[in-house]
Design a protein around this nucleic acid. Structure first.
Length: 582
DNA sequence: GCCGTTTTCGGCCCGACTGTTTTCAGTCG
């Protein structure tokens, strides 16, 4: 049983305990343990064998024993008992917005409702409104929530949420009453998927109502779910939930920090404020812990901070970029990385052309890259196995080499270079779609899985690792296949692939293409720790695809990556040296 | 269920909004 499976079981235990009305701190202990296990780079089985599980923060004797039970028997009796005590469809009810464990328990106990279908039916029959604590309005909201759930999966890709948020942010910014405004929440933290979009605005209290009224009536707003004096929630077109908070300008830095999260980062920060300075921290400011009733909201912050930088400084901390705010070591006191930016990128090393399935010529792609300020691209069209993508055989690859040579002579005066590469198929047994003599003619070789996605994870891992061990392979493309929300990826043991890349000094690609964003940022943090270099690549099939490099750097920052960790942040001469020697 | 430079028990982050209520519980972030 791997770490993800163990984490999933602990998460379910936390949910069941919550449904049962158990001690909330016990619930949190399981939820925190799940998160910790999910994110730790060390091998659980090794730690268990050495009796060192309790050295992990948040794992005590009880949870250590439960981890050991899971590792040795592949199941957890406690979990099985809990699970057996609830019907299988009950957890679905928790996905309804505004519908939590207490309400779930109420409809289950009093109406025997244990699925979304039964809940919808009960609402339509008016039986939910009749329950104590429920009413007509909540019944209606439940029905709307179920409808929304059915229509949208609940989370959205980073680039889609960003596209939906930007016009709203512009509208807020142009409002005369708005002093400062920003994105917040998971979108500001650059997570690959976004639950809802958060906006924060500072304004004079007298202007708040008008700003909120204008926000909820913006074009493209599909529904208003809540509207108060300082806060409103709406559903944007496309079904994305969005929240706006309005605060005064002195509160802005505190509110921005608070609403950016993550929840775990906030808890850690508040604990630190209490422990270190005896100060209570909320979205309005710091206040002495003893004077809780006279909060920062009424008195103002006991330490005024105009910016988040000042807020962190007040807690003797270096500024933590939003991308790192996950309570994964960013408050440990060690110097934080200087995160990679889009401006750091010097080239792109995964570019297709009309030679295979791209829609532009090599020359057009090179010109587009040059216009963006890049110094080089690497052409990597598909190999012969990709027939549907018009993959190149050995003969056409040779012809392409001649064209690239000609183009390089032409581009040399602009200081631009085209590297000649291939995106060679990894065959089912882990061998490659070209022989060594052919591969040796390329400047660089990207290996990629494009078939047999359904192999068992250990077989898939062996297949990829065999390809990575090939001396002529430079880089692994889209390491987990396709995507998070579509679930079109392939099962693979990524820690093992990362370890393999570290052993053979191979590069792993962060595929920046919005629809092919590949890898969990936690794994990038792990890769960085092992010294594995990455390439932020657009997997460009058209000129527009270069725009997606910004998304790639967002994911890289999320994984704590710096310039030195990203191969295509290097100047062309150094990249040439690295590619040509391998 | 975990944790400890107030350490083996008694804490565990904090506030807004909603819908149901005559003062609050539930949910969310």
């Amino acid at each position: 049983m791997n770490r993800q499976q163990i984490a999933d079981i602990f998460t379910e235990v936390a949910t069941f305990l919550e449904l049962r009305g158990d001690n909330p701190f016990r619930v949190r202990a399981y939820a925190n343990a799940a998160r910790t296990i999910e994110n730790m780079p060390e091998d659980l089985a090794t730690l268990a064998a050495e009796n060192r599980l309790t050295e992990i923060k948040g794992i005590g004797p009880d949870l250590a024993a439960k981890i050991t039970e899971l590792l040795t028997t592949n199941q957890l009796r406690f979990h099985a008992e809990l699970k057996a005590s609830f019907p299988p469809g009950l957890l679905d009810l928790l996905r309804i917005p505004g519908f939590g464990p207490k309400k779930t328990k109420a409809v289950y106990d009093q109406l025997q409702v244990d699925s979304l279908e039964k809940l919808a039916a009960a609402c339509q029959a008016g039986r939910v409104a009749a329950l104590a604590g429920f009413g007509e309005k909540s019944q209606q909201k439940i029905l709307e929530g179920i409808a929304l759930l059915r229509q949208f999966s609940g989370r959205h890709h980073y680039h889609i949420a960003l596209a939906a948020a930007q016009p709203v942010l512009e509208a807020l910014r142009s409002h005369p009453g708005v002093l400062r405004c920003s994105l917040a929440g998971s979108l500001r933290r650059c997570r690959e998927t976004i639950g809802d979009v958060d906006f924060l605005v500072s304004a004079a209290p007298a202007d708040a109502a008008e700003i909120i009224a204008d926000f909820v009536s913006l074009a493209g707003i599909r529904a208003v779910s809540a509207q108060g004096e300082t806060k409103a929630s709406v559903v944007l077109a496309g079904g994305i939930q969005a929240d706006l908070r309005v605060v005064t300008d002195p509160q802005y830095a505190f509110a921005l920090n608070y609403f950016t999260g993550s929840k775990e980062h906030n808890i850690a920060l508040r604990s630190r404020a209490l422990k270190l300075k005896n100060l209570s921290l909320n979205e309005y400011g710091f206040s002495p812990a003893a004077e809780k009733e006279k909060s920062a909201k009424e008195l103002g912050s006991s330490i005024p901070c105009r910016t988040e930088e000042e807020l962190y400084a007040a807690l003797d901390l270096e500024y933590v970029p939003p991308e790192l705010r996950e309570d994964l070591g960013e408050l440990a006191g060690t110097p934080l990385p200087r995160l990679v930016t889009k401006e750091n990128l010097r080239g792109a090393l995964h570019v297709h052309s009309t030679w295979s399935d791209g829609i532009e010529s090599i020359e057009a792609m090179a010109n587009a890259a040059l216009d963006l300020g890049l110094d080089y691209i690497g052409i990597s069209d598909h190999s012969k196995g990709q027939r549907q993508a018009n993959g190149l055989d050995e003969v056409r690859l040779g012809q392409q080499a001649i064209e690239i040579k000609k183009l390089n002579a032409q581009f040399a005066k602009q200081g631009f270079r085209i590297f000649f590469g291939t995106e060679v198929d990894i065959l089912p047994d882990g061998t490659l779609d070209f022989d060594d003599a052919t591969l040796a003619k390329c400047d660089f070789v990207i290996a990629a899985v494009h078939s047999h996605f359904t192999l068992p994870a250990d077989v898939q891992t062996q297949r990829i690792c065999r390809a990575l061990a090939h001396p002529l392979v430079t880089m692994l493309a889209h390491p987990t296949g396709r995507l998070l929300l579509e679930r079109e990826g392939y099962a693979v043991n990524m820690p093992a692939v990362i370890a393999c890349a570290a052993q053979h000094h191979k590069i792993i690609e962060i595929n920046a293409h919005p629809y092919r964003l590949d890898m969990d940022w936690r794994l990038w943090k792990h890769a960085k720790e092992l010294g594995v270099k990455c390439a932020i690549n657009p997997d460009a099939h058209s000129i527009d695809d270069f725009q997606s490099l910004a998304i790639g750097t967002a994911i890289a920052r999320k994984g704590w990556l710096e310039k030195k960790d990203v191969i295509n942040c290097l100047p062309v001469k150094e990249v040439a040296r690295i590619l040509l020697q391998s």
